[in-house]
């Protein structure tokens, strides 16, 4: 028996009790919807109105539609959609890091009012709805748009909005970049800059100091920002919807949208949601393991 006395009963209840609202929130707005999606995916279809009829008892679930979707993801038409989506997300995250890291780094090196102003300047454009900003892109990039006409002056005659992979990737980067910069900035802002000064004093070049000090210490921020933008990018459908509208750039979110909103096969859409969630859960697990490792190394 330890020499410490156990905490009073009210404290044993009070502190865990603080987690109650959050737990309830998660239960109501995450667990229940997720279970409902499963009940739809493995449920039935109203024979007359073609509505999805969720089956709440897992013992009565049917997996024929789900196995069909899974087969398509593994070796059918949906495989190319999954691969294409993964490629877009990887490319967009990489580009976001290349663009976002220097911005976050620069912001973190500023101080006082200047930093506040720069932060505000970065965030203000994003007060405008994402939809409106993408529609502005459409106006600029359409064949008779300002940007297209300007680029044609230099001999660049691209069909930006007709199934152009680059346009979709740039659209994803544009939409999600701030969500990468902010956690990166938060991570870099806490960095002990004396370590870099020490590295320079000990003879490290600026690039060596960056590679061996700054970058390793900002890994948690990079991981957080990456996960933060990669997860919604995987489910994104409106970027492709607005900037391409071509089968050549179809993303998994577009297929989910089609099955759920435009077909009588909602159960297939629900199954795709589950498949995507499973995939993202694996990505998230990687992130958590990675984060734990970074913390261990830091301590």
């Amino acid at each position: 028996m330890s020499g410490q006395s156990s905490p009073p009963a009210d404290r044993r209840i009070f502190w865990p009790g603080l987690a109650l609202p959050g737990s309830l929130w998660l239960a109501i707005f995450f667990v229940v919807p997720a279970y409902t999606i499963a009940c739809v995916a493995f449920g039935q279809v109203d024979p007359i109105f073609r509505d999805a009829v969720p089956v709440w008892n897992p013992l009565q679930w049917q997996f024929s539609d789900a196995s069909e979707v899974l087969g398509s993801v593994v070796g059918g038409p949906l495989r190319s959609v999954f691969l294409r989506t993964s490629f877009y997300v990887i490319a967009a995250v990489a580009l976001s890091l290349i663009i976002g890291y220097p911005i976050a780094y620069y912001l973190a090196r500023q101080e006082g009012v200047r930093r506040t102003i720069l932060l505000a300047l970065m965030v203000i454009p994003f007060w405008v709805s994402f939809l409106m900003r993408l529609l502005a892109w459409v106006n600029l990039l359409e064949p008779e748009g300002l940007a297209s006409r300007f680029l044609r002056l230099f001999g660049i005659d691209q069909q930006w909005l007709n199934g152009n992979h680059l346009t979709v990737i740039l659209g994803l980067v544009y939409g999600y970049l701030p969500f990468l910069i902010l956690p990166l900035y938060a991570s870099l802002e806490r960095l002990d800059w004396r370590l870099i000064e020490a590295a320079r004093d000990l003879g490290a070049s600026s690039s060596q100091a960056f590679r061996r000090i700054t970058l390793p210490l900002s890994r948690a921020g990079i991981a957080a920002g990456t996960v933060l933008i990669a997860l919604p990018m995987f489910g994104d459908y409106y970027t492709n919807d607005l900037l391409s509208r071509s089968p050549r750039t179809e993303m998994i979110g577009n297929q989910i949208d089609f099955f759920v909103n435009a077909s009588s096969q909602k159960q297939k859409g629900a199954t795709l949601v589950l498949v995507l969630a499973l995939f993202l859960a694996l990505v998230m697990s990687w992130y958590l393991i990675r984060l734990a490792r970074v913390r261990r190394e830091a301590s």
Binding site: L78, S80, E250, F258
Partner: peptide, 11 residues
């Protein structure tokens, strides 16, 4: 019909 269309839009 939907399957054929879905395959088409999947590219």
């Amino acid at each position: 019909w939907i399957d054929v269309w879905s395959e088409f839009t999947a590219g």
